[in-house]
Design a protein around this nucleic acid. Structure first.
Length: 536
RNA sequence: GUCCUCGUAGCUCAGCUGGAUAGAGCAUACGCCUUCUAAGCGUACGGUCAAGCGUUCGAAUCGCUUCGAGGACACCA
């Protein structure tokens, strides 16, 4: 419909002999009285033509012709408002009923290969609220982009080497020794979470104190594997299934990290100072240089990460999206610099920063920390409020809002989560369809003609565009907001209109209407990882 | 101190490639169940879009400044 009007406008512009190569914008006015569609083109042309927008609008309308448009109005300061026949809404309803779970699917992505890396929490603790937010965002974005024809890979990077894994091993060992009533010091940066104790207990339960002579590698290996299993299980329960797990160890095996540094050197991006080898990233995107090889000869964490991204580039993605917490924001410039320094296109790498979730308890901010074990875990969240409520909650807001999360409030208010409002619409429809159902789509709908029906059908019609927008702007919360509005229009429609009536024809058409609405709700919720219930 | 992100109703947030009268939910007050699910519908109340200046026919949206919140500035990861 939009395209038709744009094309017609285009034609009337060129018929008037105007040379305009800008974009013709058509919007949906907020106020109903301003028509179904509106254009600001006359005001845009005013600058070029040195004429009053109202005059230009009048000429455009004189030259305008489009059979679907039933009425046109010009309003100050120069808007052209179009009123269109509602048939397209009914045609679209048929489309929904035919395409079913594919309604809204498109191919705007055209098979472009996209890699989305998210969560990627170190296997030194279980997932917490921040991961719940990043996970909801990353997975929803992946679903939405896939729905739009992108070829998406969801990836998790496992930091299974380095200092933090040492600390993990040492922490487990210390706890195990403690259980065996032996002395072993907790490392300075040790992990104090419950799960660490649980792992030590697990070793004890199976081997009692016969493992006291195991070296640290055993604890590291054991801890990493156990923790990773839990992380993956939690994510799976949360509705996230990764396509690829890449481990730091594997990257270090695949590439000789010294070779990566050599490559940087060959391109002139390293130098030695104070006995250390530095990355000259300040000459690219960063504001200061960073160490690659420490004075003692060991590598910094930066090197495997550079190798990891080098590897991603080698895999040939058109675009790579990394999702980090804002606490890693300083890291972005380094990473992008390394991409460029290795001869790759840094524009293909996009880093999304999510504001961290602050945990609030009784009105006070609680510092979450993996080290101290003070946090709310993803698992606890799911157990308390359920996957649907959790996914919906974190899919509601854009990444850059600073969120406070009060678990006490979340528990007590779980019924206030809008996911129930949307689910309720779905369940209501399902309930009616259990009474009566039909699959016979008529050639033409005859009885669907009241204003509530048109309002909700307009929302249904908007779905593909919303999805497209969400995919291109990489904003899943647009879909969440959309489905809420759709449910709202359905509830309004429902409260004023009876669906099962004495009139057979009317009843059948009503059923097809609510079926189309239900399908659209389902498709939208599916994109944010929510599965609506048949009954509530 | 330098650099990022944010500041919209009492609270939580939408709206931001500039468009017409800035929107929801919660909270507050008041209506609506003899009929398909009241986890619902409706009405009212609630705003100097942090402040100021600028660009523009037109600014919550773009630019600059100030204030406020959060974060980053390691030979830790």
């Amino acid at each position: 419909m939009k395209e038709l009007i744009i094309a017609a406008l285009q034609k009337s512009i060129s018929d008037m002999g105007i040379n305009y190569d800008g974009v013709i914008e058509i919007s949906r006015p907020k106020q109903k009285e301003n028509g179904d569609y509106a254009s600001n083109i006359a005001m845009k042309l005013a600058g070029i033509m040195h004429d009053n927008p109202m005059n230009i609008a009048a000429s455009l309308v004189d030259n305008f012709s489009c059979s679907q448009v039933t009425n046109i109005e010009i309003k100050a300061p120069g808007f052209i408002n179009f009123f269109v026949a509602k048939d397209y809404l009914l045609e679209n309803l048929k489309k929904v009923l035919v395409e079913k779970e594919n309604y809204g699917r498109s191919n705007i992505g055209n098979g472009q290969k996209i890699n989305i890396e998210f969560v990627s929490a170190n296997p030194t603790g279980i997932l917490h609220l921040g991961n719940a937010r990043g996970g909801a965002y990353g997975d929803s974005l992946a679903r939405i982009m896939r729905f739009c024809g992108f070829d998406v890979t969801e990836e998790y990077y496992i930091n299974d080497a380095g200092n933090q894994i040492n600390n993990l091993g040492e922490s487990i060992k210390a706890r195990y020794f403690e259980i065996c009533q032996q002395d072993y010091p907790m490392p300075e940066n040790g992990y104090f979470g419950k799960e660490i104790i649980a792992m030590a207990e697990e070793i004890y339960a199976e081997h009692q104190d016969t493992y006291l002579d195991k070296d640290i590698e055993f604890y590291k290996e054991f801890g990493t594997q156990k923790m990773l299993d839990r992380i993956i299980a939690d994510l799976k329960e949360y509705g996230i299934n990764y396509d690829v797990f890449t481990s730091e160890k594997a990257i270090s095996k695949k590439y000789d990290l010294k070779d990566i540094i050599n490559k940087l050197s060959q391109n002139g991006y390293t130098y030695v100072s104070d006995g250390a080898t530095w990355f000259k990233c300040s000459s690219i995107f960063d504001d200061k240089d960073h160490v690659l090889i420490k004075e003692d000869g060991t590598l910094t964490y930066l090197v495997p990460d550079i190798a990891y991204h080098y590897d991603k580039y080698n895999r040939g993605y058109d675009k790579m999206i990394d999702i980090f917490g804002t606490d890693h924001h300083g890291y972005v410039a380094r990473l992008k610099s390394s991409v460029k320094a290795l001869g790759n296109d840094p524009d293909k790498l996009e880093v999304k920063l999510l504001q961290l979730v602050r945990l609030v308890e009784n009105g006070e901010v609680v510092k979450m920390s993996k080290r101290t074990g003070k946090s709310v875990t993803l698992k606890e969240l799911i157990d308390e409020v359920g996957v649907n409520a959790a996914r919906y909650y974190f899919s509601r807001y854009s990444l850059d809002t600073q969120m406070d999360f009060d678990l006490g409030l979340a528990k007590s208010k779980s019924n206030e989560n809008p996911v129930f409002y949307v689910s309720y619409a779905y369940a209501r429809i399902s309930s009616i369809l259990r009474e009566k159902d039909t699959n016979n789509i008529p050639e033409k709908f005859e009885t669907l003609n009241n204003v509530d029906t048109y309002n909700v059908l307009e929302k249904v019609y908007a779905f593909p565009e919303v999805v497209e927008n969400a995919a291109l702007k990489e904003l899943p919360h647009l879909v969440t907001n959309y489905v809420y509005e759709l449910a709202n229009l359905f509830h309004t429609y429902y409260s004023k209109n009876r669906i099962l009536t004495d009139n057979e024809q009317e009843t059948m058409e009503n059923i097809l209407l609510i079926k189309g609405i239900r399908q659209t709700i389902y498709n939208a919720l599916n994109l944010i990882g929510v599965i609506p219930p048949e009954k509530m």
